[in-house]
């Protein structure tokens, strides 16, 4: 059950990768990377259940935080030209 769900999510992330490569604007690419990051969080949780290692959930939690902060930081850099 979990492995089928994980395969579907990997396929969905691969579809979004097309937009990240192709995307005509920078914003499209950042959007695609953000969406792939959200899918990665779910994928990490699923991997934790497939291999019965609950420690993967900690990685998923930290990845969710990093994903959000990376998007915000990149946009701030693009808008202001600096990060301080």
């Amino acid at each position: 059950m979990f492995d089928v769900a994980a395969i579907i999510i990997v396929l969905a992330a691969a579809l979004v990768l097309y937009r990240a490569i192709r995307g005509p604007m920078v914003c499209d690419r950042v959007l695609a990377v953000n969406v792939i990051g959200t899918k990665t969080v779910v994928l990490l949780a699923l991997i934790g259940f497939i291999y019965k290692r609950p420690y993967f959930l900690d990685i998923a939690l930290v990845y969710a935080l990093i994903n959000f902060i990376a998007t915000i930081a990149f946009l701030k850099y693009r808008e202001m030209g600096r990060l301080d």
Partner: peptide, 13 residues
């Protein structure tokens, strides 16, 4: 949930 995430990917494309 998998269905909605897949549909979101198709929508983004």
């Amino acid at each position: 949930g998998c269905f909605f995430m897949f549909v979101a990917s198709i929508g983004i494309i």
